[in-house]
Write a protein that binds this DNA or RNA. Structure first.
Lengths: 353, 353
DNA sequence: GTGAAAGCGCTAACAA
DNA sequence: TTGTTAGCGCTTTCAC
């Protein structure tokens, strides 16, 4: 009598009606989770068949309303167009999907106000967890709001240490220190650092690593370290500008370190524009790999984060069981030594300026 | 047993209670859309103040259930780790957010079955629209399902022409033809093409462009065109492999064209591994720009898509008003002529093999 | 001007 | 074994 391809939607109700059963029976059977009830195999079969035939799909919105869980995650990254974040997001999304979660991917930029708006939106949508690389240095307000809505929180990449919030990151300081130490061993005395947003905890840790290496090498930080502060924002333009400044300074660096990949890209494009030969006139290395780094002439030395494992850790902390206190994950970044760091050039044009 | 006052959640109900008003009054006032009702300015004020003070945020899940609209979009791209898609996704998400929509970003890969699962999930979540660069060559099943759920559909990038579905893409064929023509004018006679997934309509159109250019230049396609078919998938590995094959063939190409950026990256890394000098031993150009293309030695010539405008068009078609028949958008890709395409080398080692 | 009440599609506690 | 019923938090007729 009833035909499935009516224009009316097929819900649990339609199935129940067409079978003269109650919606509750249908719900329990289709969810395989009958609350202490055994249905006749025949009934089960009838329901299953009808559902399949009518092309029934549960309405996740309705389900969320009652269950209180959306099985959705809010991922907030600085900028998805950054290759590092893009790769992270890709792994994150796939892992989340495998665990049965959908992902809202959001681009925060570096503006705390934008971040606030996104977080509000995601909270209003009742995501089960919020995973973000925070733009604002102070998490407390964020934490409070998430907590109040019963939403889990995980921070990654740049993580102001905040009690109670699981962190996922790499050993920024140590990795950068290792890179610098190894470069310094080649004989560099003046190193230019290209930093970005000075409020970024990750960038700060990396800078600390550089300083530590300088000290270990017996160099005075205030003499050996040039232009530690960048133009203030972590963008390619800022990196380009910093590189230009470094090169027009009275004392040029023989080693330039960029603290993030977008800064590297900007710096390298400046270098090209200025006609400076990398590896010969100055050595260069950066934090975070990027596509094509290996294809440059010479290939660029970088510190590379285990992006995939970071992403997986985030998903796990966001969706997995939470036994004890908040768990922190710190993974090791790997040094990818390529050819852009060499001995400093002889100081033939020392007084050249 | 559910306790009504279980959680100290602030909902429309709590506000109403605390003010001894009805939830309906509160709802109407907070939504600024009172169905033909004028409330006392004082009441309005009281409600607004209470809402603000109690930190009320509407529950979007509940609202969606009744309104039937989620104000969420499902964006399915091949792979967000591809710089082109990453940039697209970034613009898309931002534009959507400005229009009041949240975005589920999904990585389909090139597997139709994965695509089906994602689409199902998004449909079950009742996204208002689905925007995808389809992996499956046949859209009809997809269209049918989306339609049945009252979900809008927009396809982009690789678009099998399907009646009734708005498309957003670039003039792949013409752009590739222009690039090839210009390169051919330099004197190339043997061009190697690195293709990817042969079912990808965009890649096919690009290949058509190459062929058209060859014909226009008076070259016989079957002699001048080498290895038109790639390894079958649009990946860097596949591009690398294709480059190796091209170079080990008896007749080497003097011009190599990659039909997608990941293929370019693969090809270039092969070239480097083989020690082939780009621009000197052979000319190279690719479709889709990528970060660092400009920084290579020499900088790589590419066809670049107006990614931002493509993304904006997708959002508009997905969320905007739909007056007449499905609208198609075709934008112009730009040729970024850099230095990797030059005159072919003199055939000194013509018989060298 | 304001409120009561009927759902949106689904789950689950409580009968029968 | 199966059904009844009460919500989830919000919007929206229609009545007062």
């Amino acid at each position: 009598m009833k035909h499935p391809h009516n224009r009316s939607k097929v819900g649990i109700r339609q199935i129940a009606d067409s079978l003269s059963l109650s919606i509750c029976t249908v719900s329990r059977i289709l969810n395989d989770r009958m609350g202490g009830a055994k249905y006749r195999a025949e009934t089960v079969e009838r329901v299953r068949r009808a559902a399949a035939q009518m092309g029934y799909r549960p309405d996740l919105v309705a389900r969320s309303l009652v269950s209180g869980k959306t099985h959705a995650l809010g991922l907030c990254v600085g900028d998805i167009a950054n290759p590092m974040f893009a790769e992270f997001a890709a792994h994150f999304e796939r892992t989340a999907m495998q665990a049965g979660y959908a992902t809202f991917t959001c681009n925060i930029g570096e503006d705390p106000e934008t971040e606030r708006r996104y977080v509000d939106m995601l909270l209003a949508r009742r995501v089960d967890a919020l995973i973000l690389s925070p733009a604002s240095p102070d998490l407390s307000a964020l934490v409070a709001r998430a907590q109040r809505r019963g939403c889990r929180l995980v921070v990654f990449d740049r993580c102001p240490a905040e009690a109670g919030v699981p962190r996922v990151l790499v050993n920024n300081r140590d990795a950068m220190r290792e890179l610098t130490t190894r470069a310094l061993a080649l004989g560099h005395q003046r190193v230019g650092v290209i930093g970005g947003n000075p409020h970024d905890a990750a960038l700060r840790a990396r800078l600390e690593g550089v300083k530590a290496a300088l000290r270990s090498a017996g160099l005075a930080v205030r003499h050996a370290l040039l232009a530690a502060e960048g133009a203030g924002s972590t963008t390619a333009e800022s990196g380009a500008e910093a590189m230009r400044r470094l090169w027009s300074a009275p004392e040029r660096p023989t080693l330039v370190l960029a603290l993030a990949n977008v800064l590297s890209i900007g710096a390298l494009s400046s270098a090209r524009a200025l006609g400076i030969r990398i590896g010969e006139e100055f050595s260069f290395a950066g934090f975070d790999d990027f596509p094509g780094a290996e294809l440059m002439t010479p290939p660029i030395t970088v510190v590379s984060q285990p992006v995939r494992r970071l992403a997986e850790a985030c998903v796990r902390l966001a969706c997995g069981a939470t036994p004890g206190p908040p768990e922190h994950v710190e993974l090791e970044a790997a040094l990818r030594w390529r050819e852009s760091v060499r001995r400093p050039p002889p100081r033939t044009h020392a007084g050249l300026q």
